[in-house]
């Protein structure tokens, strides 16, 4: 993603989309790759093959309710450009900051997009969300600049690494892939 304008097609999900749907418990301890291969496998099997990197997820109320597991990292790893929802669970929102996934709260966005495949245009200069297909526009809640920078810059690990707080990432043993 470059610039302050994001434009892509949308996928619609409903209210209260929980973290277990994005990151199922049986791969909670598996590798990032395995975790990413199971996004929405319980509620929408086959979706991963349909979506393409750069797409946007539109949620309803309380997107990301549930556990502290890094569901946002899986969405980032499959290439989701942004999650926009009527409201976002604050723990999920933290993990979007932590792992570098753009997330916006935009009351009414679930009605702004009437169909999947419509094109969404986000401006991060003035925090607007526009349905390019219908021309209708809504204001999103502003994300403070420091949090936005983390969401767009790969999250907090690169910062902690640079400041000498944590060691560089080690190559993971292949065996970890077998864990759950």
């Amino acid at each position: 993603m470059s610039g302050n304008l994001v434009s892509a097609r949308v996928w619609k999900f409903g209210d209260n989309i929980n973290t277990d749907l994005m990151l199922p418990g049986d791969v909670h301890m598996a590798t990032e790759e395995v975790q990413a291969s199971r996004v929405f496998s319980a509620n929408r099997p086959g979706w991963l093959a349909e979506m393409t990197p750069g797409d946007i997820i539109i949620g309803g109320k309380n997107y990301g309710t549930g556990s502290s597991r890094p569901a946002s990292r899986s969405l980032r790893n499959i290439g989701i450009a942004c999650v926009i929802a009527d409201s976002v669970n604050s723990l999920f929102f933290r993990n979007c900051v932590n792992f570098g996934l753009l997330a916006l709260e935009c009351p009414g966005v679930s009605d702004l997009f009437t169909e999947e495949g419509q094109i969404c245009e986000i401006s991060l200069d003035n925090f607007t969300v526009r349905n390019k297909t219908t021309g209708k526009i809504l204001n999103a809640q502003k994300v403070p600049a420091n949090l936005l920078a983390l969401m767009r810059g790969g999250g907090i690990y690169p910062v902690l690494e640079k400041e000498g707080f944590i060691a560089p990432m080690k190559a993971r043993p292949a065996e970890a892939a077998a864990g759950h």
């Binding site: 604050s90 723990l91 690990y157 707080f165």
Partner: peptide, 23 residues
């Protein structure tokens, strides 16, 4: 008391601090 992400825990471990948005 509240749940945070695994990276938040690392951040708090090394700095002793964390951030919240007041609801």
């Amino acid at each position: 008391a509240r749940g945070v992400g695994a990276p938040d825990m690392i951040y708090t471990g090394v700095t002793g601090k964390t951030w919240f948005r007041v609801g």
